[in-house]
Computed example of a mutant assay.
Amino acid sequence: MMIIKMADQPHEFEQIHRLNYQLFVEEIPQHPANAEKVLVDKFHFKNRYLIALKQGRLIGMVCYNELRPFSLDGKVDELDQQIPAYKRLAEVRLLGVEKSERKISVAYRLLRSLGVELLRQEIDTAVISGTTRQIKLYTKMGFVPFGSLVGKGDAMFQPMYITATQLRDDFGNHQS
């Protein structure tokens, strides 16, 4: 059985850093390799992580934060002018599922739980750099592409946003 929860234990954060390495070093070559096979996100200090666990083992994650500057602030000129007006904005990052557990239901449940959490926090708009490998998933979930692709080589991302209206329509009527 899969459990979705906010990460709050040291062993959960250790697993987050290892999955982050698998996803963004080994699979999407965005960061250099290291012997420890650990990648701590540069925004880890301000991220809040929702995780999917199966028998205590991390199988998926997504995080968000509200503290500027966002990753996208450094990649998209005049970010605020390219998205709808907002009261509270968050950046969603590091959506990923362990390879052996990749089923649409894991990513969907993580995003659904994230949507519920963002609404609970009264965040009305969120931005994301969605891997071009999963554009179909993001747009199906209600994210709207904007601007040009960001990244390099095999690590290309599409800036996207989602509003509270879309969050409520897609996620607000569900329980996580």
Rank of each mutant, 00 (worst) to 15 (best):
A164P: 04
G147W: 01
D170A: 11
T139V: 09
V144S: 10
G142F: 04
T139R: 12
R168M: 10
K152P: 00
M160S: 14
L167A: 03
R133G: 05
D154S: 11
D154A: 10
F171G: 04
Q158R: 13
G147L: 05
D154M: 12
P159M: 03
Y161A: 01
I162G: 07
V150D: 04
L149R: 10
G147T: 03
D154C: 09
M156N: 05
D170S: 11
Q158D: 05
G151C: 05
T163E: 07
D169P: 00
G151N: 03
Q166T: 11
V144F: 14
I135E: 05
G153R: 10
D169L: 14
G147N: 05
T163I: 10
M156R: 14
A155I: 07
V150C: 07
M160Y: 06
D154W: 03
T165C: 06
G142Q: 06
G151F: 12
D169R: 12
F146R: 02
T139L: 08
D154H: 12
Y161P: 00
T131I: 04
T131R: 02
D169I: 04
V144G: 14
K140N: 15
T139A: 14
I135P: 01
P145N: 14
R133Y: 05
Q158S: 09
L167K: 14
F146H: 02
A164S: 10
Y138S: 05
I135A: 09
K152H: 07
P159W: 01
K140I: 04
T163D: 07
K152Y: 15
F143P: 00
Y161I: 00
Q158F: 06
V150E: 05
Q166L: 09
L137N: 01
T132Y: 00
K152L: 06
A155F: 15
